[in-house]
């Protein structure tokens, strides 16, 4: 748990790229990333989740059934600036790997930080989706990312 957490609860309207929006409960409480685990998911080319591993289910607090078929932006925390995700999509749509630090939103409103890597899945020369693998970030990288993302909001 971060020293800065207040435990406060609020409701925030999250606006997604493309015009969708949803009212989300936000709890200022970090859930620690589990040691040694990788959170893995795959999406189709439009960002719809097609596969999640158990670590993803456990950390997101959603069920597997709720996750598969949902847009990956279900995890987007309002503290993450839209420009960070634009950089992600511009990179992977260009066929390149993307890596960065991401604050994710859980179903219960709490959050967790990850070091995420996203790669395009190419089969017989065609893009069939994306694989995203998250691992445990260091506290110093989280602090750097928090400071950076505040300036990009």
């Amino acid at each position: 748990m971060s020293e800065k957490d207040t435990g406060s609860v609020s409701e925030v309207l999250i606006k997604y790229f493309g015009g969708d929006e949803r009212l989300a409960k936000i709890v200022d409480e970090e859930v620690p990333y589990p040691d040694g685990k990788l959170i893995v998911s795959r999406t189709d080319p439009k960002g719809i989740i097609t596969h999640v591993n158990q670590a993803f289910v456990d950390m997101s607090a959603y069920t597997r059934e709720e996750l598969v078929g949902a847009n990956h932006n279900i995890l987007r925390h309002p503290d993450m600036p839209a420009v960070a995700f634009k950089g992600l999509w511009d990179t992977v749509e260009n066929g390149e790997k993307w890596q960065g630090y991401v604050k994710n939103l859980r179903k219960d409103g709490k959050y967790y930080w990850v070091k995420a890597t996203v790669i395009p899945n190419i089969r017989q020369g065609k893009l069939v989706g994306y694989t995203s693998v998250r691992r445990k970030p260091s506290r110093s990288k989280i602090r750097e990312s928090e400071a950076l993302y505040e300036t990009l909001q």
Binding site: L38, R42, T117, I119, N121, R123, T131, S132
Partner: peptide, 16 residues
């Protein structure tokens, strides 16, 4: 083939 490709994709994410 797809299980193999998935494992390779995953390892690719670990090597950067």
């Amino acid at each position: 083939t797809e299980q193999t490709e998935f494992m390779i994709d995953l390892i690719d994410t670990l090597t950067i």
